[in-house]
Amino acid sequence: MNNADKNQLKDVVFKYLGVFASLIGIILLTIFIASIISDGLKRIDWQFLTSLPSRKADRAGILTAWTGSLWIFFLTALISIPLGIAAAIYLEEYSKKNRLSRILEINITNLAGVPSVIYGILGLEIFVRTWKLGGSLLAGAFTLSLLILPIIIVATREAIKAVPATIKEASFGMGATKWQTIWHQVLPSSAGGIATGVILALSRAVGEAAPVIVIGALAYVPFVAQSPMDEFTVLPIQIFNWVSRPDAGFITNAAAGIIILLAVTFLLNGIAVYLRYRWQRHLKW
């Protein structure tokens, strides 16, 4: 085997290594999910979905957890979407290139890298104690909103940037004000991209456990939350709670809970990917 052959071989070997590396993570995850489904699927029934938590594994359910997650989803959306989109519009369309805009940009990059558990500590001090919201849904939603704000801002800016300058010029040329141009042209044109980012961000919020644990969401909440000021739990916390119990029955419960959580996560991500695909096709003007 001469040198050239050896190099050729290395090239081919590396190619297969690349395929292997790309797939190993997803293969392991698939095997794991398959085993979870085989463990947990049989546990999912009407009783499981409609029961309150219990000390007995076979009587326990995720009613409070999924209703809590649903509350959190909508409250967080309500807070984070307007705030994130507004901040992105300011950065992209209004702010001048100066010191402040530099600081804002670096700051958002930094916020995106702050560990989620730190947001929990922030929420604990500001929302739970200073604003006296207690361990309520509202405190949780505020905390998670701050956590996903950088994701929404970055995605919205990308989407706004993709709107062709010619469209904006045409609108200004017609005598539209800045806001009229943004409202009538920029936002409708970038809605697909913004929606993609928002949904991915909300999917992240729904999957988070650490920050909501820190602000004091409880594992055991024996009632369904009726208002944003109620105490709550969410699916990831319920799963975490069951995982850390020795009883095998609770492990099965955890597996069943994970199936639901993953279904929601993948559904949201699927919607996001679909919207992105449609939006990108739409982008050809």
Binding site: P82, G84, L122
Partner: peptide, 26 residues
């Protein structure tokens, strides 16, 4: 237009406030 711009500015400033609040709390 002015009011809207101020609102957008405030939203952007919320990100700075978040950082300040994190550092202050810690």
């Amino acid at each position: 237009e002015k009011i809207i711009e101020s609102g957008l500015w405030l939203s952007a400033m919320a990100t700075i406030l978040t950082t300040i609040a994190i550092i202050w709390v810690l």
